[in-house]
């Protein structure tokens, strides 16, 4: 098969530090996150507030320069934006949805976002995630909720290869340790 990512050779030498790496792990600290639950006539109203239509196909995303809506369920989306922008977003959505049943909830602090970037990100996730992340199946407009090892995650592909992993805050330390351990084979390094 074409080599997309080469592991380090399988020998640990004394005093070795991580070698040339095709993979980096970053804690993105805070990413603005708004949980939106709405259905029926509220869908259009929410689209107006966001400036783009909510993605209705399962496990897809839509967005613009300000925010990106990730499909979580048939009446549930996670709107992702820069940290600090979520309050405004909530205000706009709540105002637009005043007459439609909805729930607009700030969950920015509920999830950490770990970024695993580089060509080797996919084989690292494949060590603990049953999803098929082959680009043919999991393209740039996709999103998925699943498990990595024993942590529930939302996986969002990023430009240039790699993923943002949204994980419940209390699991972030576990997932971080797990990714570092699983990525050792590829010389993973911590950035930022």
């Amino acid at each position: 098969m074409t080599v997309e990512c080469a592991p380090l050779d399988n020998v640990v030498r004394p005093g070795e530090t991580n070698g040339p790496s095709g993979i980096a792990l970053t804690d993105r600290r805070f990413v603005g996150q708004v949980n939106l639950r709405v259905r029926g006539s509220g869908l259009t109203a929410a689209g107006h507030a966001l400036g783009y239509a909510l993605p209705m196909a399962a496990n897809t995303t839509a967005g613009d320069a300000t925010s990106r809506a990730c499909w979580l369920g048939p009446d549930e989306w996670l709107i992702v934006c820069d940290d600090g922008k979520q309050a405004e977003l909530i205000q706009q959505l709540s105002a637009a949805l005043a007459i439609d049943p909805n729930a607009v909830t700030d969950v920015t602090d509920a999830r950490a976002v770990l970024r695993i970037a580089g060509a080797c990100a996919r084989p690292v996730l494949a060590k603990g995630c049953t999803l098929d992340l082959h680009p043919r199946v999991f393209g740039a407009d996709r999103v998925a909720q699943s498990l990595i090892a024993r942590a529930q995650v939302m996986i969002l592909p990023i430009e240039g290869g790699g993923y943002d992993l949204f994980v419940a805050r209390s699991f972030a330390g576990y997932l971080w340790d797990w990714l570092l351990d699983a990525g050792a084979e590829y010389g993973i390094r911590v950035e930022g």
């Binding site: 399962a58 496990n59 049953t130 699943s146 498990l147």
Partner: peptide
């Protein structure tokens, strides 16, 4: 491990359910 066909998400591994 079964593959469960979620009517929304498609086939997923049993561990997610």
């Amino acid at each position: 491990m079964l593959l469960i066909p979620c009517p929304y998400c498609g086939e997923r591994a049993e561990g997610e359910f």
